[in-house]
Design a binder for these strands. Structure first.
Lengths: 116, 116
DNA sequence: TTGATGCGCAACAAGCAAGTTGCGTGTGTG
DNA sequence: CACACACGCAACTTGCTTGTTGCGCATCAA
């Protein structure tokens, strides 16, 4: 089928652990598999695999610093995914105007806004 | 873990068949499982299950018309997902400005922009 | 060199997701 | 009623995903 490359991004974003990693990387700039594993209920290897998958989706990049492999976020694919969503939602253009304003605003809320 | 409700949306968007369904629904307003199955290489039941999952994620809604169950797109969760992405990407604010302009523009391209 | 730390690879088990087929039910038509 | 069409439920198979553990290699410090 292979409709878009954004499928890989959505797939990477579909996992709660990977969402948490993205969150942490968005807040703290960098991190390693060992560091994140210390705050998660899963093993270092599991975290490392998640980070590899995020890297395969282009969402993060790993850089060697000595014996460490520090990951940092790459916002590019996030924006690509937003555009994918924007194209589909544009045909209804319901709250799109609100989001456009949100993105144009200078002070954005630091927490996401879905009510649960 | 349960970080956000957007996880359900991303999970729904992670499947190529469901992406295709979203595409068709974005272009053609409504459709049924039987109609979509005719253009897909999978069975009607498989399509029906995909539509159910999209409905569970809030992305589509089904309405009974006689013996048909016609689905239509609900852009709300799409916008929610975009905001989830926006919050994370905002800390880099790389191409965010470009996207904000894109969303503010009156004539949007009718096709998505990932190179494939 | 020795020891400690961090990463990588591989094998394995368990759960979920996507697809299939079969059959039953409801709805519209003649 | 008889027939056709669309949907719904259930059982089953298959493959990927997530997690585990064990072991080996690379790097930094003493």
């Amino acid at each position: 089928m292979s409709i878009t490359a954004s499928q890989k991004v959505f797939s990477a974003l579909a996992d709660p652990t990977r969402q948490q990693l993205i969150d942490w990387l968005a807040e703290e700039e960098t991190g390693t598999a060992t560091e994140f594993a210390a705050r998660l209920p899963i093993s270092r290897q599991a975290v490392a695999r998640h980070l590899s998958e995020l890297e395969a989706a282009g969402l993060v990049r790993g850089a060697r610093l000595g014996k460490e492999l520090r990951y940092s976020l790459d916002p590019g694919p996030l924006v690509d995914a937003m555009q994918w969503l924007a194209v589909r939602a544009a045909q209804w253009d319901t709250k799109l105007d609100a989001l456009a304003k949100y993105l144009s605003a200078d002070d954005q809320p630091s927490e996401d806004s879905d009510g649960g």
